[in-house]
């Protein structure tokens, strides 16, 4: 049987330690290492070292491979005071990670030295509960959720494609959703346009969409544009957003959206459908093809959008 002190002493013999000052210097020199925060979620909420990866001590062995797949990568681990990081480093060493280091004094020493720290925008208790299933996914986590809440997405069209996309983006907590559509809700929309409801027939689609999305998630700020996107307004509107989700239903808008996105360097998530077939792609200007790379000019008049 071992006491906790013995376990710590054993780890200290095996694991090299660095202090906060040395980590700061290594960061400044842009040395190649992963800075790993193994504290609990509530400690992390209080502040963390910028550019650190967060995996709690409790989930460490289960999740580390999602973040660091290279067993020979240097990992500097920190916790609150430098004890848990020592044990974490020992455990990673047992998993075959060859270069694990513990930061003595932990976040306590780092912040006491006045070194730079970062803090995510605090979430309310309701938000922590609402997005808790996202926190379990290492690709999202709390900081990913904060990123989503800070993101601004423009939905072009609140119809067949914009409805499911908007509904799920609102549910996922994308903080700002612009919705542009000039139409009003009609009965024959309701068989597929799930943002709208029987009682909103006759209302502008952007209003009906905003009501549904806010009922699902009041965190999301919906910015309605009850108008057609055109040459005079598109650049100013695009400039307000991080990403364009294009579910429009006509070629004029599709070419307009493409050209404006290339000119403002915004990425488009593109989707289109025709009867029982659908397509989707991501048009990232100058990184992948734009819509005109695929279809340089519009089809002959009279063709139905596909």
């Amino acid at each position: 049987m071992k006491s906790s002190r013995q376990i710590i002493e054993e780890a200290r013999k095996e694991i090299p330690e660095v202090n906060a000052e040395e980590v700061r210097a290594a960061k400044d020199k842009r040395e190649d290492f992963v800075l790993l925060d193994v504290r609990d979620d509530d400690e992390r909420r209080g502040g963390y070292i910028p550019d650190s990866v967060h995996v709690t001590r409790g989930m460490l062995e289960l999740e580390i491979e999602d973040f660091v797949s290279d067993r020979d990568k240097k990992i500097i681990i920190y916790c609150g005071s430098g004890v848990r990081s020592l044990l974490a480093a020992k455990s990673l060493k047992e998993m075959g990670y060859t270069d694990t280091v513990s930061m003595a004094g932990g976040y306590r020493d780092w912040s006491a030295a006045g070194y730079p720290t970062a803090k995510d925008k605090p979430m309310t208790p309701d938000q922590i509960e609402r997005y808790s299933r996202h926190f379990m996914l290492p690709e999202i986590g709390e900081s990913g959720q904060v990123q989503l809440l800070d993101s601004k997405v423009l939905l072009v069209g609140a119809g067949g494609l914009g409805s499911p996309a908007g509904l799920y983006l609102a549910a996922a907590g994308v903080g700002t959703l612009g919705v542009i559509d000039s139409d009003v809700v009609e009965l024959n929309n309701l068989q597929r346009q799930v943002l709208h409801r029987t009682e909103t027939i006759g209302q502008p689609k952007v209003e009906s969409a905003a009501e549904t999305m806010n009922a699902l998630n009041p965190d999301v700020e919906i910015i309605p544009y009850q108008m057609r996107l055109d040459e005079s307004n598109i650049i100013n509107i695009f400039n307000e957003y991080d990403l364009i989700v294009d579910g429009c239903d006509n070629f004029a808008t599709r070419y307009l959206v493409n050209d404006a996105a290339v000119l403002t360097r915004k990425t488009i998530v593109h989707g289109s459908i025709f009867q029982f077939e659908g397509q989707a792609t991501v048009l990232k200007p100058f990184d992948g093809p734009c819509y005109r790379c695929m279809y340089p000019t519009p089809p002959p008049p009279g063709m139905v959008p596909g």
Partner: peptide
Amino acid sequence: MLPGTIGLVMATEAI
């Protein structure tokens, strides 16, 4: 039904 499938592919890509 069909737009739902494509719309959710779009939402996933956006996230």
